[in-house]
Amino acid sequence: MSEAVRLSYDVSADDFTHAGEASGAIKRTLKKLGIDMEIVRRVSIAVYEGEINMVIHANGGVIEAEISPTCIEIWLKDKGPGIKDIDLAMQEGYSTARDHIRALGFGAGMGLPNIKKYTDDMKIDTEIGVGTTVYMKVNFT
């Protein structure tokens, strides 16, 4: 792999059935490229948590990924409500998800902490009423 691989996926709002399609596709691409299983798993979980957040907290959006020989970088961009207090949102157990989301198995407040845990770099760029971009990077070595 000499050139970077670029991927882009649309994520629909409130489509709980298809949430995870983009993460699954990214996972399969990394597997095909022969990336270490443990690293593939870390990336998959992090993107999946981010994708679920786009569906349940924002109004869907776009996931863009760039795979180079040394790392994968991912941008999850939504036009949702934005995050008021990032430090609070990053705390384990903090969630604004309501009961109907919790009944679906999410809303434990572990998503953003999980992303932090499984990636080498993570940044949240957010503006109230405009949207949020979650950036993450995982190194291959």
């Binding site: 949430a19 798993r41 979980i45 919790r102 679906l104 999410f106 809303g107």
Partner: peptide, 26 residues
């Protein structure tokens, strides 16, 4: 709670759950 599952990586695990939706498989 799927996020609780996602918080702990172990090799070759079986998942037991009372939740039935596509996100369990994902």
């Amino acid at each position: 709670m799927m996020s609780d599952v996602l918080a702990y990586v172990k090799d070759q695990s079986v998942l037991l759950t009372g939740l039935v939706n596509p996100q369990v498989v994902r």
